[in-house]
Computed example of a mutant assay.
Amino acid sequence: MRIAIFSDTYAPEVNGVARTLKRYTNYLDTKGIEYRLFVPESRTPVPKVPHIERFMSIPFLFYPDCRLALPNPLYIRQTLDEFKPTLIHVATPFNLGLFGLHYGKKHHIPMVASYHTHFDDYLAYYHATLFKKWIWKYLHWFHHSFDRVFVPSESTKQKLIDRDFHPSIDIWGRGVNHQFFSPAKKSSDVRKKYRIKEKNILLYVGRIAPEKDVHIVLETFHALPPHMKEQTHLLLVGDGPLFQTLSAKPHPQITWTGFLEGEALSEVYASSDLFLFPSPTETFGNVVLEAQASGLPVIGAKAGGVQHLVSHGVNGFLCEPKSTKAFAHYTAFLLEQKSLRRSFSEKSRAFALTLSWEEIFNGLLYSFYQIASQKQEISA
């Protein structure tokens, strides 16, 4: 199998899709499966790799952190003609994805798409709901030619089914590195580094962006009972368009770390007590799984992919989206109930251990072989 992959985001960009695709290509490398990856250039200089083609890009109008590539059609066509892909995987419905779609249709190559982002949900946060109808029309048109569409979670699949999106939708789930994100990474250095003297540490990890509802995290902290609030420190890890505005309001018990990765990130997870994640727009919620692997109970929004990771009253609590009252209630409850928090922590870790990247990618590759074989039989 030779796979041509088209995406509008890839490492070293920092988002769930980019990290998942990096894991995916690492898996293909370990299995000796040939691929060519077509992605926008990174804002961070990276060494050139023979099987990764990068193109000039511009920010996407509705979502500036997403880049739209300005591809060179002649070069891509020549590269694909030489590579001779046996399957095309499109992870973006925009410029690069359009070229992959056109090439696959023209050469009758099996094609799959992966749907990663609810762009329609993002529109309200960027004051562009006027375009919702047209985005859905475009997404319907774009995806109808693929042999199969893969989505990260059951709720995403159901949302697309309800819209009669595509006749063949499968789940391509996510895993987590159980060794890298682990309770064993707990370190006193985190408290020293961020000068945390309070008893409890609340944690948020993710983009500091409107669609993540980061304001609910801040409101939750401030809504805690006074005696509990004075014993609690809030850590917010990540960067994004709201970072400068929100972090400009200093508070002695709130720390904005900016972007973290590597051991610094895994230690922050493992050294915290609770994970807050109010985003209602997730198709999966990679950071939730990382927190669970690190042994953290999660208080999240009862929406999107997060609701499939958090079992209410078992390893965390689910709240109605945007309900500061519910988030504050469950946060205060778990901070008071140390033994219950310990039980939730153990069950979070146990759940995360059931999700293995190896098994997930094995299943995805098996589906690819099935799709290619079925296409060959139909052609014959």
Rank of each mutant, 00 (worst) to 15 (best):
A264Q: 08
H222T: 11
F275I: 05
Y330S: 00
K338Q: 15
P167H: 12
Q244P: 12
L274M: 06
I208P: 01
P280W: 10
L236C: 13
F317V: 05
I5T: 02
F119D: 05
Y204E: 08
K193N: 10
G238Y: 07
V268Y: 02
K157E: 13
C319E: 01
T283D: 10
H143R: 07
I299A: 09
F180L: 14
Q158F: 10
S168Q: 14
W172K: 08
H329T: 09
W357Y: 11
E230S: 14
I5A: 04
P297A: 12
G295Y: 03
F62W: 14
S348T: 02
F99S: 02
Q337P: 10
K302Q: 15
S379W: 10
A223Y: 06
L21T: 00
E290T: 05
Q244G: 09
P45S: 08
A209G: 08
H251K: 04
E261S: 12
T9Y: 02
F284Y: 15
T354K: 13
P225C: 02
G16M: 03
D164C: 10
A352C: 06
K186S: 13
Y366H: 15
T220F: 02
T283I: 12
T117N: 11
I216Q: 01
P183V: 00
E282M: 10
P73H: 07
D121S: 15
V90F: 03
T129Y: 03
A350Q: 08
K84T: 12
R23G: 13
E320F: 06
I208G: 01
K22D: 11
C66D: 06
K229L: 05
P278E: 08
T324W: 01
A291R: 02
L289T: 05
S379Q: 15
G175E: 02
G258H: 00
F284D: 08
Y125V: 10
I52T: 01
L235Q: 03
V90G: 01
S271L: 01
P210K: 05
S188E: 13
H143M: 03
H108D: 12
E13W: 04
R349K: 09
A209H: 12
A69W: 00
E230Q: 13
S343P: 01
V288L: 11
E358Y: 11
S279Q: 09
Q244L: 13
G104Y: 00
Q374K: 13
K249C: 10
A124Y: 12
K157Q: 15
T79I: 11
E230W: 04
S7F: 01
Q374D: 14
L265M: 05
T281K: 04
A184G: 06
A328D: 06
P73M: 09
M111C: 09
A209E: 14
E41A: 13
L235F: 06
E358L: 11
E336G: 15
G97H: 05
F62C: 07
T331V: 03
